[in-house]
């Protein structure tokens, strides 16, 4: 059974043109009333106009993103040094990749870094956001303060890491020393290089704080007030109300930070590989994208580097897919109830 419902003039949701009729679907998903020819023409005109407006971006995307992505897939099947013509080699690069011990080493380094980076970022950002929420009138000042380091160029952060985390004269160890804690050799001891880089990455945590602060401010006050009246303490309110209510924001940060973790490059490259040549380079900081960069732009194995890039793409795709599957059980979307 089908029915057609016309939305009365003046009752359209915001942003919907009043002249347009709306069709309603049944639970089976069938469309109830086909639009008239005139309506279809208007709709097509609108679509074309919209495409016209976004065409600069579409053209840019096609030339500077889509084409390089497609071309790199082709390059991954070739032997290409950037100058000589690419020679098609089939899946040789992928076979070589499977036998390259540095691929496994760099991937493991990246996984460990990401495993440290994502939770530490979210936890610290959440704590700061919660503190900001209670900061009252000074919240704006602190919000700006936390966001400012985000403006620091990543290369500068890499250099800063070497200065702050120097095992002997660095400020971090000086501060630890003041409490009688002997600091480790953050920049030279392989066991401490990745934790040090993760700590340094907290320098630019500002955007995560802003996102979580916005999420916290959107948690309905009546929920926490009711919980307070019912005798719930702060911990219970946080774990039973606040975290579930901001879980979409937490999930968003988990996804984008995981991708950022897998792609980490600039700070570690600047700190450990920027000097190049024969200087000391810590293998503990040999992340996947750094190895990819090295193959592409130090050894000019562009085909092999492209294969490395596509493998990273697959790894990120799998990890992201797993995150989305898991999120179905853990993330609560208000208004998304069926």
């Amino acid at each position: 059974m089908t029915t057609t419902q016309r939305i009365p003039p003046g009752a359209e949701p915001a942003g919907v043109p009043a002249a347009l009729d709306r069709t309603i679907s049944t639970e089976s998903g069938r469309e109830l009333a086909p639009p008239s020819k005139a309506r279809r023409r208007a709709s097509r005109r609108n679509t074309l106009a919209a495409l016209g407006f976004i065409s600069p971006w579409l053209i840019g995307f096609a030339i500077f993103t889509a084409w390089p992505i497609g071309y790199s897939l082709y390059l991954s099947l070739t032997d290409y040094d950037g100058i000589s013509p690419a020679q098609f080699t089939g899946f040789d690069n992928y076979a070589r990749l499977a036998e390259d011990p540095r691929v496994g080493q760099s991937l493991l380094n990246t996984l460990i870094y990401t495993a440290l980076y994502v939770p530490s970022h979210i936890i610290v950002a959440l704590v700061l956001a919660m503190l900001l929420q209670r900061a009252g009138r000074s919240a704006g000042f602190f919000r700006t303060l936390f966001f400012l380091p985000k403006m620091t160029p990543a290369v500068a952060v890499g250099v800063l890491f070497l200065l702050l985390f120097n095992g002997q004269g660095g400020l971090i160890n000086e501060a630890l020393g003041a409490f009688g804690i002997p600091g480790p050799y953050w920049t030279t001891d392989p066991a401490w290089v990745k934790p040090g880089l993760v700590l340094m990455s907290l320098w630019s945590i500002g955007s995560a704080v802003i996102i979580l602060l916005a999420a916290l401010q959107n948690v309905p006050k009546e929920l926490t007030e009711s919980a307070t009246i019912d005798g719930a303490n702060l911990w219970q309110q946080t774990t039973r109300i606040t975290l579930p209510m901001i879980s979409p924001a937490l999930f968003f940060l988990a996804v984008v930070n995981t991708i950022a973790g897998f792609q980490t490059f600039t700070e570690a490259y600047t700190a450990f590989f920027g000097a190049g040549g024969e200087s000391f380079q810590s293998d503990a900081a040999l992340f996947y994208v750094i190895y990819l960069f090295r193959q592409a732009f130090e050894f000019f194995n562009m085909g092999y580097a492209s294969a490395l890039a596509w493998v990273l793409f697959l790894v990120i795709m799998v990890v992201t897919a797993v995150q989305f599957v898991v999120s179905k059980r853990l993330v609560y979307y208000e208004g998304d109830q069926k």
């Binding site: 993103t65 390089p68 790199s72 897939l73 492209s306 990120i316």
Partner: peptide
């Protein structure tokens, strides 16, 4: 996300 990831990692090689 994957488009961004790919753009960043693959675009550099092409």
């Amino acid at each position: 996300a994957l488009a961004a990831a790919t753009a960043l990692t693959l675009g550099a090689c092409a």
